[in-house]
Design a protein around this nucleic acid. Structure first.
Length: 813
DNA sequence: GGGAAGATGGTTTTT
DNA sequence: CCATCTTCCC
């Protein structure tokens, strides 16, 4: 069969450019060494990027395998792949579309043996890193110098992001300062422990790849030759290490480094006698959306792009296709307060839209109640829950929101935050998997040594560790030789039992399905059994969580039929918060402003717009802090398509006591005519100033008392603070929590006091009394059992939906 | 070695 | 306010 090369299909090319404005079009078709697309929020950059990739393939300027596209989250990568697929079909398969971290893992696994690691290296997440650092601090008594785990972790991470290894770091260190000397020692130990454990931390994934390329030009040349077109999204949030990685990849591969090279398919590569041109680089970014300086993101990467890549072209995308003009005007005027930025104004042709809605609650519960009520109204006006998002600055703010949402029977999901994988029992089960996949890792082994209880305590552990250290073997080796330690027969048998299980299950680690490996481990160690047999009522829920993990591993294999245990562990450690977002879920999404980056929703609630929270207290001292906080606010505003709500609370319970909050300075940067204040800070404040009962005051027309049962605002009516037996309430609370523990999704877990009305049943026509809303009449009941929801018409507070089981209500005779 | 009760210290944002 | 660590007793 003869293959006739096709000319670019004009019909198809025009399809790729269809509906694009001239700048977007240019961004798709431009060819050259370097291209910077400055893409304002909502300017259609994803569309431009995907079409650019499709266009490169379509015009035969690139084979799919020559494309490397870097996104910020796995979800964005999956979305991009999908969209390219719908444009050009199967051809999308050979492309690398992934995050920085995933791409680096892929490279490091391929090349691990070149530089002293094995393919089975594991990845330390931040909790693992912290656990290791904690041990080191303790060993060195470094806390006497004021070192905390987070400080040390932060400094090490910062160094790595700037490509400073222990050696180069200590060369510039001031050893006259004892604290600094101790830090260097900690850094040194941390690094060598990681190496010994055959593990990388998050920052290593990038940094080590760069070192690999620099130390082994032949390896680098292979990738430089392969990736002819590199595209990087969210370029404003790249740090120095990531920038350097891109630099290494866009160097021209030298012919001598490619001599005798073998391609990724194992076939010898064609040799060149002339240098190949460097890969072409496309970056997309917006310096107004740079919000990751704290993790080393360097805004200069984008600002100085033109200087870095001399033959570059810059294209500006300013037309916004997402939001109404009112929302954009607010965003523009806020961000204009950041000096040293290139002036850029987003505009749209879709019209002004609704005004921004503002609300000031008396407390964070009041604020949350307002949000819940508004969401109900939006829903009644035809909006889907999944099109609504609630943003906040700190994860701690979810508490009040969850509290109120649960009682209002609003389906919601917290994106990120306390993750499933951070739960102790899940970490334990995962540690078993890691111990099996990477026998060199002592951290995982230590974690499971006595889980479930088998009588191996700190003393035994130390003995094992000593034995291992004596002749430089691993802790795992020591386990196998426990009979040489002269320990009691019971303990020795327990250790041997564990060693046997790990070794025997470990023999299948490369081939067996992750679910089978986990099931075998759980079965043979009696892990779940032990939880079920426990007297602690919470252990039943923990057992269920572990079974949930088992389901996750099965699901993984369904999606990746050839996925190994290592693949599973890699995927788990690299999930980003935003990856959890499920577009089809039909729930309201709650997330931090950071997680919100790159997403969009019909309606956005931006909460806690207060001084001290946004901008956050901690940012005040840092150079560039307030400006970055402003960008964060800007990012939040520009996520909204139609409706934007800005809310704050006058008082906020933090650190156990109530503090008075001031409206954020950023609110004053929005022209007043853009905001429709349902309750302005002034309105709330004047009451607060004159009435001691203000915290529970009736707000205009609604007659709602705002203190929810169990909230921290003192007793009903705001009497003088009277804290009755803190121990007693804490215990009662823990008991209530244990008893309740909803069997629903682990993400929607109840975080504060939950009332339980038992099997209280209501029917239309019943009269009830609610702690906050007063008396009302049930107009309808939907759902059954614990999920029954009553719709209630209150005399003064309006219509509400309440989850009968847990609402603070009583039935009136 | 195990467990429960008190003490302590620490919270921005995340791959 | 919360989680984690320490201490004490079995």
């Amino acid at each position: 069969m003869t293959f006739i090369p096709e000319l670019p299909d004009p019909a198809l090319e025009s399809r790729l450019l269809e509906g694009l404005n001239p700048q977007q079009r240019e961004a798709v078709v431009h060819r050259g060494e370097a291209l910077l697309i400055v893409a304002g929020a909502g300017s259609g950059k994803t569309s431009v990027l995907t079409r650019r990739i499709a266009h490169l393939i379509e015009t035969k300027d690139a084979w799919p395998s020559q494309i490397l596209a870097i996104t910020f989250t796995n979800k964005a990568a999956a979305e991009m792949r999908e969209r390219v697929e719908t444009l050009i079909g199967q051809a999308a398969e050979g492309m690398w579309i992934s995050t920085f971290h995933s791409a680096c893992v892929r490279i490091l696994r391929r090349e691990a043996e070149t530089f002293g690691y094995t393919k089975s290296f594991t990845i330390y997440d931040s909790a693992d890193s912290r656990a290791l650092i904690k041990r080191i601090i303790k060993d060195l008594d470094a806390d006497t110098f004021g070192f905390t785990v987070s400080k040390v972790a932060g400094r090490i991470s910062k160094a790595k992001n700037e490509l400073q290894e222990v050696e180069s770091y200590s060369r510039n260190a001031n050893f006259a300062d004892p604290a600094e000397a101790v830090f260097v020692e900690m850094f040194r130990r941390y690094s060598s422990e990681l190496t010994r454990a055959n593990a990388f931390d998050f920052d290593d994934l990038i940094a080590q790849t760069v070192y690999l390329f620099r130390a082994f030009p032949k390896v680098a040349a292979l990738y430089q030759r392969r990736f002819r077109h590199i595209l990087v999204d969210e370029y404003q949030d790249t740090n120095h290490a990531q920038y350097s990685l891109i630099r290494e990849l866009t160097r021209a591969p030298k012919p001598e480094h490619l001599k005798g090279a073998v391609g990724f398919d194992g076939m010898p590569l064609k040799e060149y006698d002339r240098p190949l041109p460097p890969a072409s680089l496309t970056v997309v970014g917006d310096s107004d959306q740079s919000i990751y300086a704290f993790r080393g993101a360097d805004i200069r990467n984008i600002v100085e792009f033109e200087r870095d890549f001399p033959n570059s072209k810059v294209i500006l995308l300013e037309q916004n296709y997402r939001s109404t003009q009112n929302i954009l005007s607010a965003a523009n005027s806020v961000i204009a307060n950041n000096f040293d930025r290139k002036d850029k104004k987003l505009f749209t042709t879709i019209g002004d839209g609704e005004k921004i809605v503002g609300f000031t609650g008396y407390s964070q519960h009041d604020e949350a109640q307002f949000i819940a009520d508004e969401i109900v109204e939006l829903r009644e006006a035809g909006m889907d829950y999944r099109d609504v998002a609630v943003f906040y600055r700190t994860n701690a703010q979810t508490r009040a929101l969850e509290d109120v949402f649960i009682r209002s029977a609003l389906p919601y999901r917290v994106i990120g935050g306390t993750k499933f994988y951070e739960r102790a029992e899940i970490k334990d089960a995962m540690a078993y998997l890691i111990a099996v996949a990477n026998p060199a890792d002592p951290l995982a082994l230590r974690r499971i040594m006595n889980v479930p209880k088998r009588g191996i305590g700190p003393a035994t552990e130390a003995a094992l560790q000593n034995h291992a250290d004596k002749d430089g073997r691993t802790l795992r080796d020591a386990l196998r030789e426990s009979d040489q330690l002269g320990l009691g027969p019971k303990v020795t048998a327990a250790i041997e039992g564990l060693a046997t299980i790990l070794d025997e299950v470990g023999a299948t680690a490369d081939t067996a399905a992750p679910a089978d490996i986990l099931a075998a481990l759980l079965e043979r160690t009696g892990f779940i059994e032990a939880l079920r047999a426990s007297r602690d009522p919470q252990d039943e829920a923990r057992a269920e969580n572990v079974e949930e993990l088992l389901a996750v591993t099965r699901e993984f294999r369904r999606n990746n039929p050839t996925g190994t245990l290592l693949d599973f562990l890699t995927e788990v450690s690299l999930v980003a918060a935003a990856d959890e977002l499920d577009d089809s879920s039909g729930t309201v999404s709650l997330m931090t402003l950071h997680t919100a980056k790159g997403l969009e929703f019909e309606a956005v609630f931006l909460t806690g717009v207060e001084e001290g929270l946004l901008p956050h207290q901690m940012s005040a001292g840092e150079p560039g802090g307030p400006a970055e906080e402003r960008r964060l606010f800007y990012v939040g505003i520009t996520r909204a398509r139609r409706r934007l709500y800005l809310s704050l609370a006058m008082t906020r319970a933090q650190f156990g006591d109530v503090t008075v909050a001031m409206p954020s300075r950023y609110l004053q940067e929005i022209p007043t005519e853009l905001i429709d204040w349902r309750q302005s800070p002034g309105m709330a404040n004047s009451r607060g100033g004159t009435e001691p009962r203000a915290l529970n005051a009736r707000r205009g027309g609604f007659g709602a008392e705002n203190s929810l049962a169990g909230s921290s605002l003192g007793g009903p009516g705001g009497y003088a603070i009277e804290s009755g037996g803190p121990g007693a309430t804490a215990r009662a609370r823990a008991a209530a929590r244990a008893a309740e523990r909803p069997k629903t999704e682990w993400t929607s877990r109840v975080t504060s006091t939950v009332r339980d009305n038992g099997d209280l049943t209501l029917a239309a026509g019943d009269r009830i009394r609610h702690v906050d809303f007063g008396d009302g009449k049930v107009t309808a009941v939907t759902g059954t059992g614990p999920k029954a929801v009553a719709e209630v018409q209150f005399e003064t507070a309006g219509r509400k939906r309440l989850l009968i089981k847990i609402s603070p209500i009583e039935k009136l005779a």
